[in-house]
Design a protein around this nucleic acid. Structure first.
Lengths: 215, 215
DNA sequence: CTAAAAAATGAATCATGATTCACTTCTTGT
DNA sequence: ACAAGAAGTGAATCATGATTCATTTTTTAG
């Protein structure tokens, strides 16, 4: 008998695994999921194409892992802001939105990949999970604010999705001209937009109903 | 000499052209741009694959035409609401947002295809054009409201993008559970969200600045 | 009816990119 | 040094789907 897995090997495999993941995350932010080609990734890692398949059974599995990595980091940060107990609900939400917005600006393609890029079914499942966690986080925070009377009553689940959508579209929608924006100002403005939306007293729905109806 | 293009033929060709476009629009709303396969489309039109190529030089060209068609219809409707002079700026904007929201709910995949689906470069160009027209429309309406004092001063271009993003994400983001929503209520709620965002007096940016800064 | 010209056809070809696998190189315990 | 068992390799294979083009069908004018 001869070969037996030793810790040296185990570590090397772990290192290779990390190498693959980190290079893949970098590529994800350059070309999105669909542009992430296995051959190119292997090349970038200094590995053969086939080697990737010793670590991940398919591109879809790799993408799912990437998705989980990218979102865990992001959600952990947002969660941290939202779970603080020192500030008011509004302040917590504003801080969390800023974090989200800044990350979106810093890594626009990743943000787009996580939020909107069409992906394989298995990855879609991961995305729904991600959206749900996100929606839950913000929805809870909004509900806390509503409970204390700090915010007006509202459909917290819809509001939380609208928050994410507003920021995502405002910041990453026009990928073409990201560089033209003053990033700090853009973050501040879009967070303010969101805070107004959830803080304001309900917009007269009588007007709304009539203006909807008469067409 | 013999064959000469006659009006009979010209009309038939026009009819075929329309057939292709309308079936393609239908498919677009089922599977998006990337799922739109030339062979399947031809089959659906009762034509041979090759015939499509007598009418459109490539799938990319076809998609560009589809994009223009879909957006022209949508933008015309929104424009109509925004250009009315009888209502207040807020009412005009609310009506236009409702129209946008309803269309998004009725044709969610098309909405997603127009707004966010990754597409070929030529189609991206069409999309930027579309976004710009949209942003212009809403931005103008917001500025009118600001000019009359009806709305507070704001970055109209950012606001208009955030409006579209908020509604899009709130309504089409969770494609999976669209059917669970009460459509009418969802439209009304997300429009209200938007109206609050642009109508409210600026959210205290002092709070914002501090909560951003201390992390 | 016939020939010329165009339109339609759809099987074959191309292009792209994921996945496989026979083979080579390493590692390890004796 | 050796044999067993992995790990790594990358060219070949597959799958998908757009595009082409030689052939067939239509249309038209004389």
């Amino acid at each position: 008998m001869a070969y037996r897995e030793t810790s040296k090997i185990r570590e090397r495999k772990q290192a290779t695994h990390s190498t693959i993941v980190s290079h893949a995350l970098a590529m994800l932010n350059e070309v999105g999921f669909s542009g992430l080609q296995m051959a190119a990734l292997a090349n970038r890692c200094g590995l053969a194409t086939g080697t990737l398949y010793r670590y991940f059974p398919s591109k879809e599995d790799l993408c799912t892992v990437l998705f989980a990595h990218a979102t865990d980091i992001e959600i952990a940060q947002v969660e941290q802001h939202l779970s603080s107990t020192t500030d008011t609900a509004s302040e917590r939400i504003a801080a969390a939105l800023s974090t989200f917005a800044k990350r979106a600006l810093r890594a626009p393609i990743t943000a787009w990949a996580l939020i909107a890029e069409p992906v394989a079914p298995a990855v879609i499942a991961a995305r729904l999970h991600y959206r749900e966690r996100y929606a839950q986080l913000f929805a809870n925070a909004i509900e806390q604010g509503v409970a204390t009377g700090e915010l007006p009553a509202q459909d917290s689940s819809l509001s939380s999705r609208a928050l994410v959508g507003a920021i995502a579209e405002a910041l990453i929608g026009p990928l073409a001209k990201t560089e033209q924006l003053d990033a700090h100002a853009a973050v501040q403005t879009s967070v303010a937009f969101c805070m107004q939306a959830i803080s304001a007293r309900p917009w007269p729905s009588a007007h709304l109903a009539s203006s909807i109806t008469h067409k």
